[in-house]
């Protein structure tokens, strides 16, 4: 692996985990913990993205061990973002936001069974609360669990895609051109 992509991995993981401070400051129900995965994929392809995703989950696991099984989501995110980058969907918000919403649906469909069968849907405070809300609205347990995952994933992935698009366009061409996939992702090559 070229040394530039090697250096990108730790930085991308750190980005994903540092953005929670920004999210807390504006009090929005988001995670943004796949930002590094999506950004690394858009710059350097899905294999780098998968490495970033797996490591992000591993570091998260040191804080809260129940995050580990969700490494599957990070891998799916990297593969999906790889397709989106190849198709040039980061060329503008009009294409990036729908792509993010699509990822949100896929992510919540995947995380629901993991969350339900391994942890009884109690993984993180936010999801557990919305799941309890779902139950209160009369949904069956699995349905309530999906409701919880969906509410938290749907907006999150769309905002993340929009954020990555902003970054790719704000990046000087000279810097972007040093990464193999970046220009294609924003539809410039």
């Amino acid at each position: 692996m070229p040394v530039r992509l090697l250096a990108l991995i730790p930085v991308a993981v750190a980005i994903s985990l540092a953005l929670s401070a920004a999210v807390e400051a504006v009090a929005l129900p988001l995670f943004l913990d796949t930002t590094g995965t999506i950004l690394a994929t858009a710059l350097a392809g899905p294999s780098v993205g998968v490495a970033v995703g797996v490591l992000t989950s591993a570091v998260n696991t040191l804080r809260n061990p129940t995050f580990w099984p969700f490494v599957v989501i990070q891998i799916i995110v990297a593969l999906y973002a790889g397709l989106a980058a190849r198709a040039g969907l980061f060329r503008g918000l009009r294409t990036a936001v729908p792509a993010g919403l699509g990822l949100g649906v896929i992510a919540s469909l995947t995380s629901t069974p993991i969350s339900y069968f391994l942890f009884g849907c109690t993984t993180t405070g936010g999801i557990a609360l919305t799941t309890a809300l779902g139950r209160a609205l009369g949904l069956p347990p699995l349905g309530a669990c999906f409701f919880g995952s969906f509410v938290s994933d749907f907006g999150d992935k769309a905002v993340t895609f929009a954020l990555v698009t902003s970054v790719l366009h704000a990046l000087p061409r000279r810097t972007a051109a040093r990464f193999p996939l970046a220009l294609r992702a924003i539809g410039a090559a």
Binding site: R173, R174, A176, A177, R178, L183
Partner: peptide, 8 residues
């Protein structure tokens, strides 16, 4: 020596 950075 002449050198160009990418995309410049």
């Amino acid at each position: 020596v002449e050198f160009h950075y990418p995309a410049t």
